[in-house]
Design a protein around this nucleic acid. Structure first.
Length: 264
DNA sequence: ATGACGCCCCATGGGCGA
């Protein structure tokens, strides 16, 4: 079973790219972030025609997440628990039938958090840290099921210096600073494995290149899209791929897909 | 010091992203 994550930066603008990639990569599950549309605007018919069920948590103009799956989910959860006043669509989760049981997949669009503010106390950065604390609480709950669990998505976290073309320049940014790394490690330390770091681990394997300043042409990238796996998922992980070639396409997203292949 | 690129919207420029 191939389980992938891709921040697509508008599903409507990216339909040609999405269609082409689905046909080529043949994932069984695809977590999408930044679909930038309400549920009714999601191109459900076109994607169903390609053989995928769509679980969608949309929002007007910004954010929005979805999970495409070959099989119909047994369960769907919309939104991250812990704050009823949070109106940003950044989390959706499905339980899917799998070989010998189920697999649970959470799709994450973690807040960016910039600007950080003078004492790292801007509204946006506090929202990021609050969201990460909520994700930790929810992840802790999910781990108790002792199932194969994959929390996949755009974490907006650069885990290591080797995951950034210019770590000194980026240090202090909301994606790469002490509070962010501490919160990320607090989640991982509940019992998750970063699929890429565990099975590959090479430096300079990026998943995002800014549209601006020739970032792609000069390989000025960062690795911020991650598959966090429970032990039960990690035991079944065969390999991890970052589909860098997708960034060369016509009108690409600024992120590329990351794919984990599991014996599930 | 600014803008750069690309997406969104009852738009025609401003907000947002990372």
């Amino acid at each position: 079973m191939k389980i992938a994550s891709w921040n697509i930066n508008s599903v409507k603008a990216r339909m040609p790219n999405l269609t082409e990639w689905l046909k080529r990569a043949q994932p069984d599950v695809l977590c999408l972030q930044e679909i930038k549309t309400v549920d009714d605007g999601f191109p459900r018919m076109e994607i169903e025609a390609l053989g995928y069920h769509c679980s969608v948590h949309g929002q007007k103009s910004y954010n929005g997440v979805a999970i495409l799956s070959r099989v119909t989910p047994d369960e769907v959860r919309i939104g991250l628990p812990g704050d009823e006043n949070d109106e940003q669509a950044r989390y959706i989760e499905v339980v899917l039938p799998a070989k010998g049981g189920v697999v649970r997949v959470g799709c994450i669009y973690l807040p960016n958090g910039n600007p950080v503010g003078e004492d790292a106390d801007s509204e946006k950065y506090r929202y990021k840290l609050d969201w990460m604390a909520r994700l930790k609480d929810h992840a802790k709950t999910l781990l108790k099921f002792e199932e194969p669990l994959i929390l996949a998505g755009d974490y907006n976290v650069i885990p290591r210096a080797g995951d950034c073309h210019d770590p000194e320049g980026w240090w202090g940014d909301a994606l790469y600073r002490p509070e962010t790394l501490a919160a990320f490690h607090a989640i991982k330390n509940l019992g998750f494995y970063d699929a890429f770091e565990t099975l590959d681990g090479r430096d300079g394997q990026y998943s995002f290149w800014d549209y601006q300043g020739g970032a792609w042409q000069n390989n000025l990238g960062i690795r911020i899209d991650h598959l966090l796996c429970s032990g039960q998922a990690m035991d079944r992980l065969v390999d991890v791929t970052i589909d860098k070639f997708v960034r060369e396409g016509e009108r690409p997203s600024d992120h590329v897909p990351i794919i984990g292949r599991f014996e599930l």
